[in-house]
Design a protein around this nucleic acid. Structure first.
Lengths: 109, 109
DNA sequence: CCCGCTACTCCGTGATACTATGTACCGGTA
DNA sequence: TACCGGTACATAGTATCACGGAGTAGCGGG
């Protein structure tokens, strides 16, 4: 995708990852793969790892190390209470935004 | 609104302004006011002016100076062909994103 | 023995919004 | 007159976030 998508993902990607984690715990490489499968084909790996560090430092997730059969140990992230609260707040902000945009798209300005 | 909104607006605000201009030409101060009325209560004035300079330099809009009865002359921006194309591209990117997010919100992950 | 996949990390860059501040024009009011 | 508030635009500095690119490391297969 283009530059527009890159900019639009700012602030949204974090919510997307939180939403993914709300389903079940996951580790970085897995999350990157899932994002790619979803169609976010050029989300950079480094971006995802940096984001995970960020939400960990914000205290939105817990981390556990699990050995992998195929490489270095995985850092499995799981949403905690604060993370769930943050996700809800994200959805509120998101729906506010979609509401306004929908209005704009229908020529409602 | 909070910091989440600030981050989410990155990349979106430009589309929003283009959408506003697609209705009819407008000048900076007016756009800021309209954004506030829409609920984007803390979009900074400086942000809007910087954005307008940006889209002008990208060649998405035309500019005309009109005198004002109440202050300095207004710089009235109007969408040109390239701006309309950019706006359409914005809507495509936006609907891609909303599609994925909708899926995620319905626990579809 | 190297290649490719898995898995994580880090540094520098670019884009964007915010804060804060400044300039300037105008009308109303004390 | 002097000042204030609303109109209107501009800019310098800061923070955040995604990307590009490179590096480290474990593991299994040709």
């Amino acid at each position: 995708m283009g530059k527009q998508m890159t900019e639009m993902l700012k602030g949204t990607l974090e919510g997307i990852v939180l939403a993914i984690l709300s389903g079940r715990p996951a580790y970085g490489y897995e999350i990157t793969t899932r994002l790619r499968e979803m169609g976010f084909s050029d989300v950079a790996e480094g971006t995802v790892y940096a984001l995970l560090v960020r939400i960990e430092q914000k205290g939105l997730v817990g981390v556990e190390k699990h050995p992998s059969e195929k490489g270095p140990p995985r850092k499995v992230y799981s949403l905690n209470a604060q993370g769930r609260a943050d996700l809800e707040e994200f959805w509120r902000t998101w729906s506010f935004l979609t509401g306004r945009l929908e209005q704009l798209q229908q020529g409602g300005n």
